[in-house]
């Protein structure tokens, strides 16, 4: 199967120098050197996981899932730090991973800092400056115990969530991202949580289109 319908429908292929058909072809060829090169490249990080390829593939294959598998292996082997887009996994771990384990949510309002999110615009800036007032007005239970939107997740539930990460390998996976990133930060003589984070969050060489 090499028709390229996945590439025709792919939002990432339209924006980046990216071709899911070629990735699947490379994986199918099974050449270890080629696959290692792929795992160390920017290429596997261009997909947006919208899974439009799943709908359109005439053989019900899903290049997006092949990408997810490659990304997992790239991180398990520590190859993700070889590419600019791969190194961004640290930023994602730092923001989303830590939020999950600290607060029980992938995203919370205080994470969406206006200086990091200028695209959110002046209304979000106003919300951010008045979180308690705005969320109270809209019937939320912001950072309070009990039910409701944005409630504080109770400590027993948080313990269970963290235990699930421990038991299923989630914690180990996040630690792997951390240790590989720490190694790069040490080599560059920069602080992991500040300078390295900002670099992985903001750096764009412009060589991706």
């Amino acid at each position: 199967m090499n028709c390229g319908v996945c590439t025709a429908i792919c939002p990432a292929a339209e924006f980046y120098n990216y071709d899911p058909r070629v990735i699947v072809e490379t994986v199918q060829r099974g050449n270890e050197e080629e696959i290692e090169e792929l795992l160390k490249s920017d290429t596997i990080w261009y997909c947006g996981e919208c899974m439009s390829c799943k709908t359109r593939c005439p053989r019900c294959n899903t290049p997006g899932l092949v990408i997810m598998a490659l990304r997992k292996i790239s991180q398990e082997l520590g190859y993700f730090v070889y590419s600019e887009k791969g190194r961004q996994q640290y930023a994602l771990k730092h923001v989303i991973g830590e939020s999950i384990l600290k607060r029980g949510y992938c995203v919370t309002p205080d994470l969406v800092k206006p200086e990091m999110h200028p695209e959110q615009g002046p209304v979000w800036e106003w919300i951010y400056e008045h979180l308690d007032d705005v969320y109270e007005r809209t019937h939320s239970n912001y950072r309070q115990p009990g039910a409701g939107a944005l409630r504080e997740v109770d400590s027993e539930s948080m313990d269970e969530l963290r235990k699930i990460f421990d038991v299923t390998g989630g914690t180990e996976f996040l630690e792997k991202i951390d240790s590989c990133s720490q190694h790069v930060a040490d080599k560059e003589k920069i602080d992991l949580e500040e300078a390295y984070f900002l670099k992985t969050y903001m750096e764009n060489s412009g060589r991706h289109q």
Binding site: L92, I96, G97, F165, G170, L174, I177
Partner: peptide
């Protein structure tokens, strides 16, 4: 975002 494994 590929930071949480499937089993988790």
């Amino acid at each position: 975002s590929d930071i949480v494994p499937a089993e988790t």
